[in-house]
């Protein structure tokens, strides 16, 4: 009889799904183990980049490039966290304006240099220039694109210096806001921004799924183009051959977030593991290979593996966190 009661009892509980999730603990873990360390790394390396440009440009461009790549790597660890301090004053866009579908970045850079714009020499003024000329992507043009590296303009180092300073300021501001209250608000979830731990968890879940989607659809989808018309020139950060690396780094960051949010769900982690293995084996740093059929098939397989991972997240993690997958709610149109 007891047995039957137990079975009945568990059936009654079943629709509420598995174990109760300790939402405040999830948020605490994500903030302390994922978000804060990510922004600390970004702030430290961005400050180092700013210093490197000041001391080594133009004499030792290799040192500048090294610092640039390290700082850009750090950005990839947080690029999916598009809420709160990163969105204040458009900071994230000012760090990372991509994709640049209309070619604003090289145009704006060229006019800043041609006019010897006062903003080049003034960090305060520089915050008012178009965001297409701020952050890591325009800096890549100055360091790697022949338009700016062959016969460099006399103000190239000044422009890079102000740009790096701006990157460092923005990164520091995001970290400061996280440390000075936003992290606490998210964890406590007793305020106007987060009224309950569920809302904070939902925000983190959204960051995870939109991050994966962006990598599959934009980081990979843009250079893949269509079968008839591949677009290798649209690959993200192809000039510095960082395209493949960005997919790897963003997957690693999302994997950590997924693992914290799901408390190490093995099925989801296997999805990440598989996608990461594919990208590590790829050997196509700037996705130039999408122009060939074989190269395209490999990138397509990677895209499929990421999409599948996102499906696993929706299937296993969403319900566990009480996030409904409404037919219309998910449509976004």
């Amino acid at each position: 009889m007891w047995k039957y009661c137990l079975i009945l009892y568990s059936l009654l509980l079943a629709p509420a799904y598995a174990q109760e999730v300790d939402m405040p603990k999830l948020v605490t873990n994500v903030v302390n183990e994922h978000i804060l360390p990510g922004y600390e790394r970004l702030a430290t390396r961005s400050a180092a980049l700013s210093k490197a440009v000041e001391t080594s440009c133009p004499d030792n461009l290799d040192a500048v490039k090294l610092a640039y790549n390290e700082a850009f790597d750090a950005w990839m660890g947080v690029s999916h966290l598009r809420f709160g301090p990163s969105e204040d004053n458009n900071r994230a866009f000012a760090l990372a304006f991509w994709p640049d579908t209309r070619g604003f970045t090289p145009k704006t850079l060229a006019s800043l240099l041609t006019d010897n714009d006062p903003a080049i020499h003034d960090a305060e003024k520089f915050t008012t220039v178009s965001i297409a000329a701020r952050g890591f992507y325009p800096m890549e043009f100055l360091l790697y694109d022949t338009q700016f590296t062959e016969e460099p303009a006399p103000q190239r180092c000044d422009l890079m210096a102000v740009m790096a300073k701006d990157i460092a300021n923005n990164s520091a501001a995001i970290l400061r806001d996280w440390q000075a209250g936003y992290g606490e608000m998210m964890i406590k979830a007793d305020n106007d921004i987060y009224r309950a731990p569920e809302e904070a968890v939902r925000q983190l879940y959204t960051a995870l799924t939109t991050g994966l989607q962006f990598t599959a659809q934009t980081r990979l989808g843009r250079p893949m183009g269509s079968f008839e018309k591949p677009r290798p020139n649209r690959a993200e950060a192809r000039r510095s051959e960082r395209s493949q690396r960005h997919v790897l780094l963003s997957l690693q960051a999302n994997r950590q977030l997924a693992s914290l949010l799901s408390e190490n769900d093995e099925d989801i982690d296997r999805g990440f593991e598989r996608a990461i293995r594919i990208v590590e084996d790829l050997d196509d740093p700037a996705f130039a290979g999408v122009g060939s059929i074989q190269g395209r098939i490999r990138v397509e397989a990677l895209q499929g593996a990421i999409t599948l991972t996102n499906d696993l997240v929706a299937e296993y993690l969403g319900p566990k966190l009480g996030i409904s997958a409404g037919f219309n709610a998910l449509d976004g149109d």
Binding site: P99, T101, A132, Q217, G221, M224, G332
Partner: peptide, 16 residues
């Protein structure tokens, strides 16, 4: 919002 079928329904121009 600018979109391109190559990137599915991803939004390509939010800042501008």
């Amino acid at each position: 919002i600018e979109t391109h079928p190559d990137s599915g329904r991803e939004k390509l121009n939010i800042p501008t």
